[in-house]
């Protein structure tokens, strides 16, 4: 028996919107402490890791660990039928080949349930070790989205370089080049507007902008984004979900030929 009631249902809608274009289908792993998902895109270049902890739910019941394979496009279609203020409940029964999403309006005058077929998914799980990163940049998520969108109109790849001077995003394309430098800026009115650079060693890496732009679909989940880089590791782009968990995107770098 599985029953999870999320008062802030819009959060689940936002999570799905942030990952459904990167990953077609995925296993949702439910346990008593919360639920998680890990899935690579079809080219094995990017990976999404989602965690939503049980504490963030108004009601959370998971009698035994269970994994449910869901098509994220279909799940997104169903969650789009929930209002932004709706309470969303996910229900499942042991051995069933369906999952039910229940949507309740805040005034309880409209209650809908949508039953979705589950699917068998051969998931390839990767072990992601804890790592010490050379540089960690925390910045406003909207600023990061703006930079990725702007650079993608000039080139296909972005070089992200972190030095003690700041973080530089560079691209080049047929029409020319672009460089955007952000300096550490902690003298802001609101902490979420700060750019904070933690650097142990300078690092410079190249990534495909197409993926970075896909990750920025998670912008509505968090005011800030954290970018962690080490030369011998995929970059981690993390959007924290307040009080509940995170959506992390891992992206393999491009290497010099």
């Amino acid at each position: 028996m599985l029953e999870l009631r999320l008062v802030q249902g819009s959060l689940l809608k936002k999570v799905l919107e942030s990952i459904k274009d990167l990953v077609n289908d995925a296993n949702f792993d439910f346990s008593s402490s919360g639920f998680s998902l890990q899935s690579m895109d079809s080219s094995h270049v990017a990976l999404v890791a989602l965690l939503l902890k049980s504490e963030g739910f108004e009601h959370y019941r998971c009698d035994r660990n269970t994994s449910m394979g869901m098509n994220l496009g279909n799940m997104s279609k169903m969650l789009k039928c929930a209002g932004n203020d709706d309470i969303i409940t996910i229900k499942g029964d042991d051995g069933s080949d369906t999952v039910t999403f229940m949507f309740e309006s805040p005034t309880q005058d409209k209650i809908a349930d949508f039953e979705m077929k589950l699917m068998d998914i051969d998931s390839e799980h990767l072990g992601i070790p804890e790592a010490e990163y050379h540089a960690i940049v925390k910045m406003p998520s909207a600023e990061f989205a703006r930079i990725c969108k702007d650079l993608a109109s000039i080139g296909d790849t972005v070089v992200i370089s972190v030095t003690k001077e700041g973080v530089k995003f560079s691209t080049r394309g047929d029409i020319g080049t672009a460089n955007i430098v952000l300096r550490q800026n902690t003298t802001v009115d609101k902490p979420e507007d700060a750019t904070v650079i933690e650097m142990n060693e300078p690092v410079s890496m190249t990534f495909a902008l197409r993926y970075m732009n896909s990750f920025t679909k998670a912008t509505p989940l968090s005011n800030t984004v954290t970018i962690s880089m080490s030369p011998d590791l995929p970059v981690v782009v993390e959007y924290k979900i307040a009080e509940m968990g995170y959506v992390r995107f891992y992206l393999a770098p491009k290497m010099e030929e």
């Binding site: 690579m40 080219s43 094995h44 270049v45 990017a46 990976l47 390839e124 799980h125 990767l126 072990g127 992601i128 070790p129 080139g155 296909d156 790849t157 190249t206 495909a208 011998d232 590791l233 995929p234 891992y250 393999a252 770098p253 491009k254 290497m255 010099e256 030929e257």
Partner: peptide, 14 residues
């Protein structure tokens, strides 16, 4: 512009 690497180079399959 460099060759694209893949994640299984960096992370092992479980």
């Amino acid at each position: 512009l460099g060759s694209q690497t893949v994640l299984p180079i960096y992370f092992r399959h479980l």
